[in-house]
Write a protein that binds this DNA or RNA. Structure first.
Lengths: 253, 253
DNA sequence: GCTGGGAGAGGCTTA
DNA sequence: TAAGCCTTTCCCAGC
């Protein structure tokens, strides 16, 4: 396939905001946060309507090379024939990252008119579980009353602040998957933040489906608490059961 | 395009380990770690030789839906015509995640014979910088002698352990980008690990191009140290300059 | 623009 | 298999 033709099609695709797929023998070079070279080989280039670029090999979900558009909007600054027999494509972004693709030959180029939609409806996110929990904190521990959700601290956003039956403040950090060191230290930070702010001893509860063993040890050493819980994914996610510490109680209801 | 034809091509592509691209009107449903629905719409389906699956909309580098093959190898368990006018594709993996794709119509299907290669050569990774630093620790601080690299602890892998001019143990954690809370708590863990093991007071140095302000405060509160450094990405990444604390010294050489 | 943090994180390495 | 962690993480929300 003629590279000049390919060039025209890419430029047109950019103008029309269609998705453009190019398969061919290429070399890719990236410089930015790191630098990389992808030696000559047959790959798939994908250019989307937002000018994001991906180069895919025939394995793994993630592209080997790419230029994202979300944070530092990127732009194709060059689509040009060099020496009459190389198609040079350059993408740059505001962070001064540069992606260079050289096509030596192109097997196929396809342009598809796909909408720039963004219509995935996901459920089972942490926010959703958070809301479900907020609706019924008693479920977690009798006498627990919600005070605040998504309280913004200087050091992050605290999931839930509550008050227990003895009037003690309780900071709750919810995780939708196995809790790791990060979850524990995060909770620790928030508890300290609250204690400093209110100048009063505060409890910290980590709520997660599971916790890594060493994270559990760290948590204990910090004097924090852990509850496990089960949840069901579906239209609206539901918290099913809560168990103290390592004991997991399923289907309390 | 006839769905029966599409079905045949997909099955053939799977057998031949070629990359298969399908563009058409589809509905996608996912259940696993979370659950999601992607309403009817025109999208690109990509099936790779390792059976990984991605559904791409016309924006962003990341696919809206996918099934990864790396950790929990996935498999296309079904590619079938339903009611004669729907093409149902189901992918499952060992983690019991399920991705269902229903095509109502297909605009185009393409099969490309790409190698399953994995030949990206990346430089500027943390490991590389680590090696560069290990080669000349004096660079960081006069009298600093390397003892161990990638020392494995129960709680993680410590980048570098060294001994300073006073014979004191020094744990070094290197980051290739702005250090955050995680970096600080990580270093803290390793220092504590060493102190416990050797029963001797140990220094901890965080080395990063930059550090977030609150991470810096946390670091100080832990009595740890921070050095900034610059590096150059290229064929072989090079550490260019080191500055104590917030002061950044560039191009010492 | 910076910061913090979630994500169906992905994917790799070592125990 | 599980844990730990690096990633050009990507991407978004809040300030």
């Amino acid at each position: 396939m003629k590279l000049e033709q390919v060039r025209e099609k890419i430029l047109n695709s950019l103008k029309n905001q269609t998705m453009c797929l190019v398969v061919g023998n290429c070399f890719v070079s990236y410089t930015g946060r790191a630098s990389s070279k992808l030696p000559r080989g047959k790959r798939l280039l994908m250019i989307k309507a937002d000018s994001s670029v991906s180069i895919h090999e025939n394995r793994l979900v993630r592209p080997t090379n790419y230029m994202t558009s979300a944070k530092t909007s990127c732009e194709l600054t060059e689509v040009d024939l060099k020496k009459g027999k190389e198609l040079l494509i350059i993408s740059k972004n505001k962070a001064k990252e540069i992606l260079e693709i050289i096509f030596y030959s192109v097997d196929d180029i396809k342009v598809y008119d796909l909408p720039m939609s963004n219509d995935l409806r996901l459920s089972g996110s942490e926010k959703e579980l958070n809301d479900a929990l907020m609706d019924d904190l008693e479920f977690l521990e009798p006498g627990l009353k919600p005070i605040n959700q998504q309280q913004v601290f200087r050091t992050g956003v605290c999931d839930i602040i509550a008050e227990d039956k003895d009037g003690k403040l309780v900071v709750i950090e919810l995780k939708r998957r196995q809790a790791d060191y990060g979850a524990v230290t995060q909770l620790k930070r928030y508890v300290e933040q609250v204690e400093k702010l209110k100048n009063i001893k505060t409890r910290g509860i980590l709520l997660a489906p599971d916790i890594r063993k060493s994270a559990m040890e760290l948590l204990k050493s910090y004097g924090l608490e852990y509850y496990s819980y089960d949840f069901e994914v579906g239209e609206r996610s539901k918290i099913k059961g809560i168990g103290k510490s390592q004991q997991k109680i399923t289907d309390i209801f």
